[in-house]
Simulated assay, not measured.
Amino acid sequence: MLDQIPPPLAFLADAVTTRRRALGLTRIDLHGAGGPSDSTMSRIENPTVSTAYPRPSTLDRLDTALRWKAGSAAGCLDLRVPTPLEDVAAPAPVEDPPTHNWNPVSVGQRSDPLDFDYVAVPVDVLRDGLMIIQQNLTPADIAGGATALRQLIQFAQKLSAAHATEVLERIGGPGRPMPGFLQITFAPYLLEEVPFDEPSEQQRDDQRYRRWLVGAADDVSGRYERRLDRKLRAIALDAI
Rank of each mutant, 00 (worst) to 15 (best):
E193C: 00
D219N: 08
D205N: 04
R150C: 08
R127M: 06
F155D: 09
D112E: 12
G175P: 00
G108I: 06
V88D: 03
A217V: 10
V121I: 00
A216Q: 05
E193H: 05
G144W: 02
P179A: 03
L85P: 11
N101Q: 12
D112V: 15
P195L: 00
E193Q: 06
E86V: 10
L85R: 02
F186Y: 08
L182E: 08
D219I: 09
L182K: 02
F186M: 05
E198Y: 14
Q203A: 15
T165D: 12
V107S: 04
F181R: 01
A90M: 08
V194H: 01
L191F: 02
P122S: 07
R110Q: 11
S221K: 03
T165E: 13
A146R: 04
I132N: 05
V123M: 15
D141S: 12
A217M: 13
Q151I: 14
D206I: 13
A143G: 14
V121C: 00
S106K: 11
E86K: 03
A120D: 04
V214G: 02
P104T: 02
P104C: 14
V123R: 02
A217E: 14
R210E: 09
Y118A: 07
M131P: 01
Q203S: 14
S111K: 05
A148C: 08
T165P: 04
A120I: 10
Q183A: 12
A156I: 03
P199A: 12
G129Q: 10
V123N: 00
R211V: 01
D197I: 10
L126P: 02
E192A: 08
Y189V: 03
D141M: 07
G145Q: 12
R176L: 04
D197S: 01
V105W: 12
G175N: 06
F186R: 05
V88T: 07
L114Q: 12
R208G: 05
D124F: 15
G145C: 06
L149S: 02
S160G: 09
G129F: 00
Q183R: 15
T165S: 10
D117W: 04
V88A: 01
Q183V: 15
A90K: 07
P174I: 05
Q151W: 12
P199F: 07
D141G: 08
A161N: 03
P177G: 07
A92T: 07
Q207M: 14
V94A: 06
I184K: 02
E166Y: 00
T99F: 13
G129D: 01
G180Y: 06
D206K: 01
I153R: 14
Q183I: 14
Q183C: 10
A90L: 05
F116E: 04
A217K: 15
V167T: 01
D141F: 07
A143Y: 03
G175E: 06
V94S: 12
G215P: 00
Q202L: 14
S160A: 13
V94Y: 06
L85N: 06
M131V: 03
Q202H: 11
N101K: 15
V94G: 14
R150H: 05
I133M: 01
T185I: 12
A216P: 10
I132H: 01
